[in-house]
């Protein structure tokens, strides 16, 4: 199997791409931080899928006789002001976090990628107009703009996702444009044009694949910021609405008791830190593997 994967003369398309993936994953596995990050993200995904089986109690079931209990064997992370088990809420909250992160990435990364690639490839007026638009979005702080959008669209998790996605794409457009500029005059692009390929075919089949690796790195590194923005919106009451167990909203509720019942705000905060760190580690590791500019330095 190993020999088949690292063969330098693969016999099929499948073997060639499998070999490339194998080599990349090998490099990723040699990077301890990346492995730690991947494990944390894996844990997040597993928790989100298996939440009903892991969580000992319902995330929304109230029990007012168990209000604000400290962490114990019964309630690993204590209970909140309505007697809900914080551990169960954190577990279910991973679903919301994962959904936000995944949807924001799915919306904003392709949008930024396409806008940046078109802008960089055509240059001239197309570039000026698209980059002007991007600059307008970039010039405002992310959280403030997300706040404005949520305020306009109305609070709620879907609107929070849309707002974050709208604020996230300009950075990706900038990266994709910069990448595209480095090879839009490359001979392989000229050669493909001479074969009779249309501009859209060149952008989709030849330019975008070269932008994706740096994009994956950047999106992974931005995940932490996205989680924090989502938590920030939740904290301000503009993201997920009660009784949804969103981590930012949970911290916001715990703020009232932070001096006497520290665990109410701390536990979801720890979850946010852990997941953000996981994405940062994974992003750094991916950059070492995928980014051709840093390759060969280590």
């Amino acid at each position: 199997m190993h020999a088949w994967l690292i063969s330098d003369s693969p016999a099929s398309r499948l073997q060639a791409s499998a070999g490339r993936a194998y080599r990349a994953s090998g490099m990723l596995l040699r990077n301890p931080l990346a492995v730690a990050g991947a494990l944390i993200i894996g844990l997040l995904i597993f928790t989100a899928i298996a939440a009903p089986w892991i969580a000992p109690e319902s995330p929304v079931g109230q029990n007012l006789s168990n209000r604000l209990l400290p962490p114990s064997a019964d309630h690993w992370m204590g209970t909140d002001e309505l007697g809900r088990d914080i551990f169960s809420r954190v577990i279910y909250g991973s679903r919301i976090t994962l959904m936000i992160v995944a949807l924001v990435a799915v919306i904003s990364a392709p949008l930024g990628l396409v806008i940046g690639a078109i802008s960089g490839y055509f240059g001239g007026w197309t570039d000026r107009i698209l980059m002007g638009l991007t600059d307008v979005f970039l010039s405002m702080p992310k959280l403030i703009m997300a706040l404005a959008f949520v305020a306009a669209l109305g609070p709620g998790i879907e609107n929070a996702i849309i707002a974050i996605a709208i604020t996230a794409w300009p950075a990706y457009a900038r990266i994709a444009r910069a990448e595209t500029l480095t090879f839009r005059n490359a001979e392989f692009v000229s050669a493909t044009r001479l074969l009779g390929a249309s501009h859209s075919r060149i952008i989709v089949r030849h330019v975008l694949p070269l932008c994706t690796s740096s994009m994956i790195v950047r999106v992974t590194l931005d995940m932490a910021g996205i989680i924090l923005t989502a938590a920030g919106l939740g904290f301000l009451g503009l993201g997920a609405q009660p009784p949804l167990p969103e981590w930012g909203a949970m911290i916001s509720r715990g703020r009232v008791f932070i001096l006497d019942q520290w665990w109410v705000a701390t536990m979801p905060g720890l979850a946010i830190i852990l997941v953000s760190l996981g994405f940062c580690f994974l992003g750094d590791g991916l950059r070492d593997v995928l980014d051709p500019k840093s390759a060969g330095k280590s």
Binding site: E187, L194, L195
Partner: peptide, 12 residues
């Protein structure tokens, strides 16, 4: 058709 100078730059 055209063949370019630099074989390192002319292949994707």
């Amino acid at each position: 058709q055209m063949v370019f100078q630099d074989p390192y730059g002319s292949l994707h």
